[in-house]
Amino acid sequence: MADQLTEEQIAEFKEAFSLFDKDGDGTITTKELGTVMRSLGQNPTEAELQDMINEVDADGNGTIDFPEFLTMMARKMKDTDSEEEIREAFRVFDKDGNGYISAAELRHVMTNLGEKLTDEEVDEMIREADIDGDGQVNYEEFVQMMTAK
């Protein structure tokens, strides 16, 4: 299944994987998964984290390695993001709930994920998604960005 991913997608997933893999040992533990999910405003229980890991832990060693992570991402993409997942993601970014993602809100979430971005990089990300040019990202623009192939 992971063989249907483009090189660009694999590179993006590698970057995402390293955000989860806090200690850089090449595997994601339940603790690391929990840290990232909490930084995104989720509050999973230990059991939920274990279930999430077990779902993709092909070799049964209790952690997720990069090939397992790729399989999980490929699977998720095949079920292409349901509207509800996209709306949920939008809410994570839209901290003040005004229906727009500002540069400050984007920077806040990315920083929580451990991504240190310059102001230019954040502005560039907003510009790429900002179709109507108002300097922020509304829900429609967010959907376009998330579903762009």
Rank of each mutant, 00 (worst) to 15 (best):
M37C: 06
M52Y: 07
D79K: 09
I28T: 10
F66M: 02
A47I: 09
L117C: 04
D25R: 15
S18C: 07
Q136G: 01
D130Y: 09
E140T: 05
D119V: 09
E68Y: 05
R75A: 11
T29M: 05
A74W: 06
K149G: 07
V109W: 09
D94N: 11
T111V: 00
K116D: 00
E15R: 03
D21T: 00
E32G: 13
G34P: 05
G24A: 11
E115A: 06
D81F: 06
A104R: 10
L19I: 05
Q9C: 12
G34Q: 03
T80E: 10
G114Q: 02
I126M: 14
I53D: 05
E88D: 12
A2Y: 04
D23I: 02
M145S: 05
T6I: 13
R38E: 14
E55T: 00
D3K: 13
A16S: 10
E46G: 12
A89Q: 03
M52I: 12
D25T: 07
I131S: 08
G60T: 08
T27R: 11
K95N: 04
S39E: 03
A103F: 02
E141D: 11
L5W: 03
N112L: 08
F20M: 06
F90M: 05
R38L: 06
E128V: 14
I86C: 06
I131K: 05
G41S: 11
V36D: 10
E7S: 02
V122L: 09
D51H: 02
D21L: 11
E141F: 00
E83I: 01
E12S: 05
D81C: 10
I53V: 13
M1H: 07
E46W: 09
N112H: 08
P44W: 08
A89K: 02
S18R: 14
K78C: 13
F66L: 13
T111W: 02
K95H: 14
T6Y: 03
E83T: 01
N54I: 10
R38T: 13
A47Y: 03
G26N: 02
G114L: 06
E121P: 03
D130Q: 04
D81K: 03
A129G: 11
Q136A: 09
F20H: 05
L19R: 04
T45M: 03
D57V: 10
G60K: 15
Q136T: 08
A74S: 11
G41N: 02
D21V: 13
M1V: 10
V109T: 10
G97H: 03
P67K: 03
E48G: 14
G26M: 09
M145H: 08
M73L: 10
Q4N: 15
E15C: 04
L49G: 13
M146H: 07
T63A: 11
A129E: 03
N112A: 03
F69H: 03
E55S: 14
V56I: 05
G97S: 11
K76P: 15
N98Q: 02
R91A: 06
D132T: 03
D119H: 09
M145Y: 08
A16P: 03
V36C: 07
E48K: 07
L117I: 12
K31V: 02
E48D: 14
G99I: 00
Q136D: 04
G133N: 10
S18W: 09
L33G: 00
T29I: 12
A2N: 15
L49Y: 15
K31W: 10
M110L: 12
R127Y: 03
D96S: 04
I126D: 06
E55H: 14
S102P: 08
A148Q: 15
Q50A: 05
F13Y: 14
R91K: 04
F69I: 04
M72T: 14
D123W: 08
Y139H: 12
E115H: 12
T45N: 08
L70Q: 01
K76R: 12
E12D: 13
M110V: 11
G62H: 14
Y139K: 04
A103P: 08
L5G: 06
V109H: 12
E12P: 04
T6D: 04
M110D: 05
S18H: 03
A148M: 07
D59K: 08
K116R: 13
M145K: 09
E46F: 03
Q50W: 07
M52R: 08
A104P: 13
R107A: 14
P67M: 01
E55G: 13
G26S: 10
A148H: 07
T71R: 10
M110S: 03
E15L: 14
S82E: 07
D81A: 14
L40C: 05
L40K: 13
Q9S: 08
M37N: 15
N54L: 00
D123T: 02
T30M: 03
H108A: 12
T35R: 09
G62L: 08
R107P: 02
M73P: 06
F90C: 05
M146L: 09
E128S: 00
G133D: 06
K116S: 07
D96R: 02
V56S: 05
Q9M: 00
A103T: 13
V137C: 13
T6H: 05
E12T: 04
G133C: 01
T63M: 03
S39R: 12
D96F: 07
T35S: 12
M110I: 09
Q136P: 08
V92S: 04
R91Q: 10
N138C: 15
Y100D: 13
M52G: 14
L19G: 04
D130S: 09
Q144P: 10
I53Q: 05
A11R: 01
E124S: 10
M1Y: 07
N43D: 11
P44T: 13
L49E: 15
A58G: 07
K22M: 05
S18I: 02
V109N: 01
M125T: 09
E55W: 13
E140H: 06
L106M: 03
F142E: 09
E88Y: 14
R87K: 08
A103G: 10
G99C: 12
D51C: 00
E8T: 08
D132E: 09
E115Q: 07
